[in-house]
């Protein structure tokens, strides 16, 4: 097995995503499981006529995909088509049930910006925790801390517990952390809208520079203009399968055309 040290320089061929025949069955058990009360009722025939719900739903079906160094891949598709599931499978958060995924490079996923804060810890401490979650060393995080604090622009609140923040301040800090502690492979679920109007402009500029500096970007979005302007390649996911793969202009055109017919 190839071994990497964090100090190793990343060569172009070292940064890639490869999916071969990936299948992901999303278990419905945790959602569909009834309560103890309904279980007891069913013992006495209360649920005799009920149709047994399926145990799983196939969220990804035989997905094969290769993304190389420098590519910016956009994923489009209707709600529930499997876009976000594909992104989380690439991040290794959702275990796959078939096929293989091979990633070269440090993965950074930005899925839910507010998730993962320790409310009793200060903003500065949370910068550390978020970086450590990504597998960065404390010294690497310390070298970016000043930039994050400056960008978040929340003043002395940075040394107060997160629970004292307004929701806008928490989002600004989360955005700053997520975009300054950058990985090689950047996975984004929708473009992020953070904070007030002034911060939005700053955030947009930061997102553009982040996208440009990522070695690989995979972006899920419903905004076709974003896909066209940011990405160099796009795929259309439908029913857990890739049904179109090509330039953003071509894929978006096919997607909009087919969607209009439905």
């Amino acid at each position: 097995m190839a071994k990497f040290r964090e100090s190793d320089a990343m060569r172009p061929h070292d940064c890639s995503i490869s999916l071969q025949g990936v299948v992901l069955d999303y278990p419905l058990g945790p959602v569909a499981r009834g309560s103890i009360k309904s279980g007891l009722f069913s013992l006495f025939g209360g649920a005799r006529d009920a149709v047994r719900a399926p145990d799983t739903v196939r969220a990804l079906n035989n997905v094969s995909l290769s993304v190389g160094y420098g590519e910016r891949l956009g994923i489009i598709g209707s709600n529930g088509s499997g876009k976000s599931t594909l992104l989380r499978a690439i991040a290794g958060i959702y275990p796959i049930t078939g096929g293989s995924i091979e990633i070269h490079g440090r993965v950074q996923g930005i899925f839910d910006i507010g998730l993962g804060f320790e409310p009793e810890s200060t903003g500065r401490e949370n910068i550390l925790y978020r970086g450590l979650t990504m597998g960065m060393s404390p010294s690497q995080i310390a070298s970016r801390e000043a930039e994050i604090v400056e960008f978040a622009n929340i003043g002395t609140f940075i040394d107060l517990p997160i629970r004292t923040y307004s929701s806008g301040m928490a989002v600004r800090l989360a955005f700053a952390i997520s975009t300054y502690l950058q990985g090689d492979v950047l996975l984004l679920d929708e473009m992020l809208g953070a904070g007030d109007a002034a911060f939005q402009a700053k955030a947009s500029a930061r997102m553009r520079s982040l996208v440009e500096s990522a070695k690989i970007l995979v972006l899920v979005s419903h905004d076709m203009n974003t896909i066209k302007t940011v990405c160099t390649r796009a795929i259309w996911v439908l029913g857990g399968r890739i049904v179109a793969d090509g330039t953003p202009d071509d894929v978006v055109e096919v997607y909009l055309e087919k969607s209009a017919q439905v």
Partner: peptide, 19 residues
Amino acid sequence: VKVGVYKNYGPTASGGWLD
């Protein structure tokens, strides 16, 4: 149990027995 293979060769390598 159906199992797929996930390997990450980055600095936070994972997959297989490494988990």
